[in-house]
Design a protein around this nucleic acid. Sequence first.
DNA 1: ATAATATAGCTAATGCGATTAGCTAAAAGA
DNA 2: TCTTTTAGCTAATCGCATTAGCTATATTAT
Lengths: 191, 191
Amino acid sequence: MKVGLDRKKIVETAANMADEKGVSNITLKLLANELGVKSPSLYKHFSGGLDELNKELMLYGWCSLENEITRVAVGKAKDDAIFAICHTYRSFVSKHKGLFEAMQWYNMYQSKEHLQATQGTVSVLFQVLEAYGLTEEQKVHIVRMLRGFLQGFTAIESHGGYGNPTSLDDTFDFAIKTILNGISDLQRGAK
Amino acid sequence: MKVGLDRKKIVETAANMADEKGVSNITLKLLANELGVKSPSLYKHFSGGLDELNKELMLYGWCSLENEITRVAVGKAKDDAIFAICHTYRSFVSKHKGLFEAMQWYNMYQSKEHLQATQGTVSVLFQVLEAYGLTEEQKVHIVRMLRGFLQGFTAIESHGGYGNPTSLDDTFDFAIKTILNGISDLQRGAK
DNA sequence: ATAATATAGCTAATGCGATTAGCTAAAAGA
DNA sequence: TCTTTTAGCTAATCGCATTAGCTATATTAT
């Protein structure tokens, strides 16, 4: 007793468990067990129970992704930076399938707090886009397209939804290149 | 008693319920209630219980989407057809947020049967791409990119994840156009 | 038409995990 | 040292999924 838990330790353990067993298979009982504690004790740290834990898991996931992305984008610009960010995103998802599932649940928990969750990641993208001399609106389109593609592609990939034997790496790079071309077109004012 | 249920009626009711309350809030109790029956009775139609129901929900969703997409693509070719398909996909999701959630769960249920679920939708896309004279591999890349973008964009949109006031319609059309440009580049053999 | 069989739906019972209530002892502070 | 907080515990409640076994309606065969 008096194990000395805190929210951080709990969330991290839950994140690992999510990656191992899938986020929907996390139970307070299992989690408590893993932490050497009984399940009701977790309410001392998460009064909102399982719901609150899932919310924290989501925030934790986006925060981790933001950190990885920010780190990899340091010292890179333009297409280089975008490539690096996209690859980091994809590899993050492949390493954290369970956590990524939780990250997509910012539906159940809609509020400013949760909209902000993705904000960090989004703002890194915006910052990189500064270098291209686009209008605000154009940047918004690009960021949204990138986010949409990244989330969809990685979700499908991590669920084994792409059946064809063709290389997924090639598809991924092709897609990024296509989006980068879209940026070029905007720069040179193509319709 | 002897209400005369069948799987179809149950799945359709569940689909509506998913769209109203969210797929995670479907309980056999509520569903049975809605159908004028007690929850254990549902096991006579779905021996696998809630799991099997969710699986059927997923299959039903992809099948519905495939139908809508196929119907709208009749008599259209190339960019026209792709635009129409994408818009249909997006509007399907906005009309069926709950069902769409279920459709994304083809992870829990991975098997050939479930990989086939998306197959119908995918093959419509392939068919449309025939007209562009691309290689098999190029078609695979395009289809994957389209699927990734469509799923990600609509998921984020339906969760209210795009916070900016800029028009989402514009972003959507911009993205499709960008992908269509990618097709053109492939045709003319751009690097 | 009648008897035999199958089955949709029901009630009662089980089980499990989330959550709540109330207790206790370790830790922090006056 | 005395008080207060609080992390963790046990016991109890609740709701929902699921199972077991019953019954009456349909269906099929005779």
